[in-house]
Amino acid sequence: MNSSEMPATRPAAQPELMHAAPGEAKAKIRVLIADDHVTVREGLVAMIGRQPDMEVVAEAADGRAAVSAWLAHQPDVCLLDLRMPILDGVATIGEIRQLAPAARIIVLTTFDTDSDIANAIKAGARGYLLKDSQREELLDCIRRVNGGETCIPPALVAKLAAGISNEALTGRELDVLSLLARGKSNKEIGANLYISETTVKSHLRSIFTKLNVLSRTEAITVASRRGLVKI
């Protein structure tokens, strides 16, 4: 969406206090929401606004606005989409973490390839959730990350571990795989890369072994799921 459709940031409200117990007062968890889809932001604002221990202090429609909003409002937790205009999620995490290494950021996205998860965690995300997660799962993740924990669902941890444990493809194998995903034949791959068909077949055997697949179609499917190629 065009970030001009709404202000990049929502003015911070005056901090409110909630009573955790008689004689005690606890500040609400201050949340920044960064997502380029206005309907997603509105839904999250409404959901978080209903929680007695949370409040949304700012919104951002792109990565650059998210960094500015973080600087202006210093939220406790940032909910961040992975794919955004101007500055993507991973780059946004990197910039925020350069400014504040202890920043608590949760990636909330539709993308779950092992490369997406790994890149976000390497950049410094403290949580990673998919947008189809249950409401209580998201709210629990916000509270846990605010408390200093890391929050990644077991299924995504398993996917990340599987990707890390597999032997990495070489640059040339990735070139071959990319052309394979575009529907090129062995002869066409060889012509594009200036290598023989025999060499192409050798690379394909290595690719199949590393991806633990038996066919070209399966190799493309697995590679796409891991974020190695786009189809």
Rank of each mutant, 00 (worst) to 15 (best):
G227H: 00
Y194T: 15
D116C: 13
E59S: 07
A61D: 01
A155I: 11
S115R: 15
D112P: 10
G124P: 13
P52S: 05
L156M: 14
A161Q: 14
V213A: 08
L228F: 08
N166V: 11
T198K: 04
A65R: 02
A27M: 05
L44A: 03
G190E: 01
I142L: 06
G89T: 09
S133R: 04
Y194H: 10
P52H: 03
T110I: 14
G183N: 00
P7G: 02
P22V: 07
K230R: 15
M84Q: 02
T199F: 10
D132I: 07
M54Q: 05
I121L: 12
I189G: 00
F111Q: 15
K230F: 00
A8D: 00
N166A: 13
L179M: 07
L204W: 09
E5L: 01
E149Y: 12
R226Y: 04
D81P: 09
I105E: 04
L79I: 12
S165I: 14
L139H: 15
V57I: 04
M18Y: 01
L17D: 01
G171H: 11
D116G: 06
K230Y: 07
A120S: 15
R50T: 06
Q98G: 13
L211T: 11
E42F: 05
G63I: 03
A13K: 02
H37A: 12
D76H: 12
A191C: 06
I48P: 05
A181V: 12
A125V: 07
A155K: 14
K187P: 04
G63R: 00
D62N: 14
L44N: 06
D140Y: 12
V31T: 09
A58Q: 04
G127Q: 08
I96E: 10
I195R: 03
E55P: 04
S202H: 14
C78G: 11
R135M: 12
S202K: 08
A27F: 06
A120F: 10
G127F: 03
